[in-house]
């Protein structure tokens, strides 16, 4: 069965999704909407997001800036379309609640968000290792995700809170938070420091540090940074019987390196205590299959009615609530946020 696709927002992400759908083979892009027209497109291009419905699509791929996501998603669901949307899921947890209400009203329509880190090979391997139980109980997690902010940092819509809802944490750190919750469930208890260090005139954070604990007592610490300079992804999970870490993450730019999964089981001495520095196994992943896996899962959810595992609206809500908890847990940052002009739709 071939699904007719309308892509709303045909920029970098829209094109990545398009290519993945072409590789899959079960999709046909019939129209794309963007402010700039692609002269090479072999499908219709429109500038009005509502015009895509004239082409009778089965699904809407939503690859627009954060502040436009809720409107595009809700309209699509109201018109009975299945929706695949980029992350972050809007600018706030209220945005996600609005989309969840539209999803419920649309009943059997699929809504999936692109939290693709869950399906990176190294992450999936780490999950398998932990789920097997061999590693024992999870004690704590550490995550670092950072980059150099980039030459257009101050001008980018991503760093305009009215459009994005926040800075590096909501844009990039959100993936790490989503992984934490995938491994350990919801984190309610949060302490944080949110800072502007380099881009002091830009109204969003360029660094966020958080220490959090879930109901089972599992502790996680995250550092999300736009002043990391050296592009870095590192997730470490420490368990009763050993540890698992993922260094690097395959990305479109390739600048976060290949994915290296390291796993070790402790060696015990005669008294049953772990001997330091156990033998570890290192597995290297060099091909980013995450886009293809996301598209395949979405297709199976729409066509075969299989339940979504990754990128559900509940996961989206959980992670946006955690982002907000981190922003508000730093009293100083909380005050700065309150002093800023409220988001346009919240001002009404």
């Amino acid at each position: 069965m071939t699904l007719r696709v309308a892509i709303v927002g045909y920029g970098k992400m829209g094109r990545i999704r398009h290519e993945a759908m072409e590789r899959h083979g079960g999709f046909e892009v019939v129209v794309a909407c963007d402010t700039s027209q692609d002269p090479d497109a072999n499908f219709a291009m429109v500038t009005d997001p509502l015009a895509v419905y004239d082409f009778n699509p089965d699904i809407i791929v939503c690859s627009v800036p954060n502040m436009m996501i809720p409107d595009v998603v809700c309209t699509a669901l109201e018109r009975g379309k299945h929706v695949f949307s980029e992350k972050p899921p809007g600018r706030s947890s209220d945005d996600v609640r609005r989309m969840i209400a539209a999803e419920r009203a649309a009943q059997d329509r699929v809504l999936k968000f692109g939290f693709n880190h869950r399906v990176h090979d190294a992450i999936e391997e780490a999950k398998k290792l932990i789920d097997a139980g061999t590693m024992g109980e999870l004690y704590f997690m550490r995550g670092v995700y950072g980059k150099a902010g980039g030459p257009d940092y101050a001008q980018s819509w991503r760093n305009d809170p009215a459009q994005s809802g926040g800075g590096i944490l909501i844009d990039q750190g959100i993936h790490m938070l989503d992984l934490f919750q995938m491994f350990a469930g919801r984190f309610e208890d949060v302490q944080s420091y949110v800072q502007r260090n380099f881009w002091t005139d830009v109204p969003v954070e360029d660094n966020a540090f958080a220490l959090m604990k879930n109901a089972d007592g599992i502790v996680a610490s995250v550092h999300s940074s736009a002043t990391q300079w050296q592009h870095t992804f590192r997730l470490e999970l420490y368990l009763r019987n050993g540890f698992v870490s993922v260094d690097g993450i395959l990305s479109a730019s390739g600048s976060y390196g290949t994915e290296v999964l390291t796993v070790a089981l402790n060696r015990l001495d005669t008294t049953g205590n772990p001997i330091p520095n156990p033998e570890s196994q290192e597995l290297r992943f060099t091909e980013d299959k995450s886009w293809d896996k996301e598209v395949a899962e979405f297709y199976d959810a729409v066509v075969k009615e299989e339940p979504l595992r990754c990128g559900t609206s509940q996961q989206a809500l959980d992670v946006m609530e955690l982002v907000e908890r981190i922003y508000s847990a730093d009293p100083e940052w909380h005050r700065i946020l309150q002093d800023q002009t409220p988001l346009p739709d919240q001002a009404i």
Partner: peptide
Amino acid sequence: REFEYISLMNWISLTEARLQ
């Protein structure tokens, strides 16, 4: 040789986990 034995046992354990 205990480390050699543990390496073999862990090899099996981690493969088992990855193969599910």
